[in-house]
Simulated scan of single mutants.
Amino acid sequence: MTSSAAKTSAGRFFEDFRLGETIRHATPHTLTSGDASLYSALYGARFAPQSAETFARAIGYPASPIDDLLAFHVVFGKTVADVSLNAVANLGYADGRFSQPVFAGDTLSATSQVIGLKENSNKQSGVVHVRSKGYNQRGEAVIEYVRWVMVRKRDSAAVAPQTHVPKLPKAVGAAELGAACPRIDRRAFDDALSGSPHRFEDYSPGERIDHVDGVTVEEAEHQIATRLYQNTAKVHFNQFTEGQGRFGRRLIYGGHVISLARALSFNGLANAFHIAAINGGRHVAPLFAGDTLFAWSEVVETAALPGRDDVGALRLRTVATKNRPCADFPLREGEGYEPHVVLELDYWALAPRRL
C-alpha cells in the first residue's frame, strides 16, 4: 500500500502567507432553519426578529433573519483551513460590517485578503492580518471584517514574509450602518413581545448594564457549535496535540464566547436586535469547558442614522468574564485586564426609535 501525503493539507504556516494575496475559501454553506434552531439551542439567543417569523414580518423583514453572529461564524469557519489551522490564538477583530441580512436558504461563501504580516521576536510564529468577506449566492457582500491571528511557523529558520502592520479605524462610522437592516415599522415593534420597553432613546453614553445571568460552558456544546461552522482549528478539537500544549486542554472557540455574551446581553438590551458592525474585539484570556460566563455592557455612544427615523445605533462595549459575576463591572486592573476577563467586544447594534 502506498501513501500520498501530497493529497492532504497541513494548513498554512506563517511563512506561507504573502502580503496582498487573496484566498478563495472552500465549501459554501447553505443556511437553513435547522441551522438557526441549532444556534438557538446552543446559545439561547432570544432577540425577537430572529426568533419569530411573525414578529420579523410585522416589522418589515421578508422573513425572520438568521442571527447575525451565526452568519459571522459561518463565514469565519470558511477561513480557518486557509488562515488559522495552525494558529496559536486568534487575537482580535476590527472594521467589521454587516451589510445586509442573511435568511434561511442563503448560501454563504468567503474570501480573505492578507493585509498584514509581522514575525514574532521568538521566530516561532507570526501575526497575520486578513480582511475576510462573506458573500451570498448572488455575489453580494453580506459581512466583512478584519481579524489578526498568531500562526506557527513550520521552520523557525525560514525567512519571514514582508512585514506590514495595517492601520485600522477605531470604529465604523455611524453613517455606514443604515444598510444593515431594512426599514422597520416601529409602530409594529411590540415591546411586550420583544421583551423590553427600552428603545434607542432610553440609553445614554456611559451607562453600564450588568446582564445578571451566567451560563456554564459545556464540552459537548462548544464542540457541536464549532462543527456547525465547519471550523477545523486544532486548538478546539484535537486533545492529542493540544493536551501537550501550554494549556494542556482544548480551547473554547472565541466565537462561542461572543455568542454566549451576546445572548446574555438580552437581559438589558433586548431591543438592540441587530448587530450592524464590529469596531474591535479582543480575546483577553482562554475559556475552557466547565467555566461559567457572565457579561456586562457599557453604552459608549449613541448615534442617529442619516435618513432613518425608524432605528438608531448604540455603540456597545460588552465584557465577558469567567467564574465571576459582573455587578462591579470588572474590566481593567493596573495596566492590564482583571484576571477573570475573557472578552472585550466593541460593536454597533440597532434599536427601534420611539414613536
Rank of each mutant, 00 (worst) to 15 (best):
S4T: 08
S4L: 11
K7I: 04
S9N: 01
A10C: 03
F13I: 05
E15H: 05
P28H: 05
H29Y: 09
G34L: 10
D35M: 07
S37H: 12
A41V: 01
L42P: 12
A45G: 00
P49N: 07
R57T: 14
G60P: 07
P62Q: 05
S64N: 08
P65C: 07
I66K: 10
D68N: 08
D68W: 01
L70Y: 05
A81T: 00
V83K: 02
A87R: 10
L91F: 00
Y93W: 14
S99V: 06
P101T: 06
P101L: 09
F103E: 05
A104K: 04
L108S: 07
L108P: 04
V114F: 11
V114L: 07
V114K: 08
I115T: 14
G116I: 10
L117E: 02
K118Q: 15
E119G: 11
V128S: 04
V130K: 03
R131H: 15
S132D: 01
G139I: 00
G139V: 00
G139K: 01
E140V: 09
E144V: 05
V146P: 01
V149T: 15
V149G: 03
M150S: 15
V151Y: 09
V151L: 08
R154N: 13
A157Q: 15
A157I: 14
A158W: 11
P166T: 03
P169N: 10
A171R: 14
G173S: 15
A174V: 06
E176R: 14
L177W: 07
G178D: 02
P182V: 08
R183L: 13
D190M: 12
D190T: 06
D190Q: 09
D191Q: 10
A192C: 01
S196L: 08
E201N: 06
G206A: 10
D210G: 07
H211W: 03
G214N: 07
E219I: 09
E221P: 00
I224F: 15
L228E: 09
K234W: 15
K234I: 15
F237D: 08
N238F: 12
N238I: 04
Q239H: 12
F240I: 13
T241P: 00
Q244N: 15
Q244L: 15
G248Y: 14
R250P: 00
Y253M: 14
H256W: 08
I258W: 05
L260A: 00
L260K: 01
A261E: 01
A272E: 02
I275R: 06
A277N: 01
N279L: 05
N279S: 09
R282D: 02
H283T: 01
V284Q: 10
V284I: 15
P286T: 12
P286F: 11
F288E: 05
A289G: 13
D291M: 12
D291V: 06
T292N: 01
A303L: 09
A304H: 15
R315G: 00
R317F: 05
K322L: 05
K322E: 04
K322D: 00
R324V: 09
P325A: 14
A327D: 14
A327F: 07
F329V: 14
R332W: 13
G336L: 09
P339S: 07
P339D: 07
H340D: 08
L343M: 08
L343Q: 06
L343D: 02
E344F: 06
L345D: 02
A349M: 10
R354F: 04
